[in-house]
């Protein structure tokens, strides 16, 4: 299926390269298809939502974008993913690609380093050595992830000893510390309380000014609150892509989308 890019202002829109362009993407794990024939593009400075039930291939999609297939010899990726117009399967230095893409996994991963070092890791990998600069980055990222107030007095304690929700926000802070061009969040709110979730959502809305965000979520209302456009994945296929409001007002091409969004899925 083809994503119709609405031509709003002819010149600017068509000239701007999509942040991510996915063509005929299919993913198989040792012969079992997880995702087939996905075609979509993510535009610069938009929040692109992906909704869908379990096993729809949402996480696999993110893994393919970040070239995480290299971890798993069983994972075969077909088709083409272009990041800033560059075919990611032909990139020789995948580390360079990954540094420009931040990922937040559904299960929080506080690395067994101090809270400070968790957040300072990415800037350090990028060669930042100035302690004053690092302090600024760490504070800013922890602020944005709504964690600073809780941990500012114990930045030296182990990140892996924080509570689940705190670790999740630490993970978000760490992803932000990469200063990514593209931030991919995979069900980030799964271990976070509703109040904190709303705070982080506000931060994501602000971040849209600077970066592009892909938001995979189980909470359709979260997609509605945040996403400019939303894709609905079902059983390894991308069933629908459209402006988020259209999905929620019933302007859909596939009846299953409406059923899912309205919670009548069975």
């Amino acid at each position: 299926m083809v994503t119709a890019t609405p031509d709003t202002s002819e010149g600017a829109a068509s000239m701007a390269l999509p942040k991510l362009q996915v063509t005929d993407l299919s993913i198989r794990y040792g012969g079992t298809a997880a995702l087939s024939d996905v075609n979509l593009e993510v535009r610069e400075h938009e929040i692109f939502g992906i909704i869908g039930p379990a096993n729809a291939g949402k996480t696999s999609f993110l893994k393919a974008v970040n070239r995480m297939d290299l971890f798993n010899p069983d994972m075969e990726v077909g088709g083409e993913v272009r990041f800033n117009g560059v075919d990611t399967s032909r990139i020789r230095n995948v580390y360079g690609l990954r540094r420009r893409i931040g990922v937040v996994f559904p299960l929080p991963v506080g690395l067994p380093l101090s809270i400070y070092d968790n957040v300072a890791l990415a800037p350090r990998l990028a060669g930042q050595k100035d302690p004053a600069e690092l302090d600024v980055i760490v504070e800013r990222c922890l602020q944005r992830a709504a964690l600073w107030d809780e941990v500012k007095d114990r930045l030296d304690s182990l990140g892996s000893l924080l509570s689940g929700g705190q670790q999740q926000r630490l993970t978000i802070a760490r992803a932000l510390s990469q200063e990514p061009e593209l931030l991919m969040l995979d069900e980030f709110s799964i271990a976070v309380d509703p109040v904190t979730t709303m705070r982080i959502e506000d931060v994501l809305k602000e971040l849209r000014q600077e970066i592009t965000i892909i938001l995979v979520t189980n909470l359709v209302q979260q997609a509605r609150r945040l996403a400019d456009r939303t894709a609905f994945f079902l059983e390894g296929r991308c069933v629908e892509i459209g402006a988020t409001e259209d999905l929620f007002t019933g302007e859909v091409r596939d009846a299953r989308t409406r059923d899912y969004v309205e919670g009548r899925f069975g």
Binding site: N66, F71, Y95, R98, G102, F105, P112, A122, L125, Q178
Partner: peptide
């Protein structure tokens, strides 16, 4: 998951080992 998290951030294999795995 520690290795994956670090590698997803763009750490090389050696950086993952040196900065994350060995300390852990």
């Amino acid at each position: 998951r520690y290795r994956e998290a670090a590698e997803a951030m763009g750490a090389t294999r050696w950086q993952v080992i040196y900065k994350v795995v060995l300390p852990a």
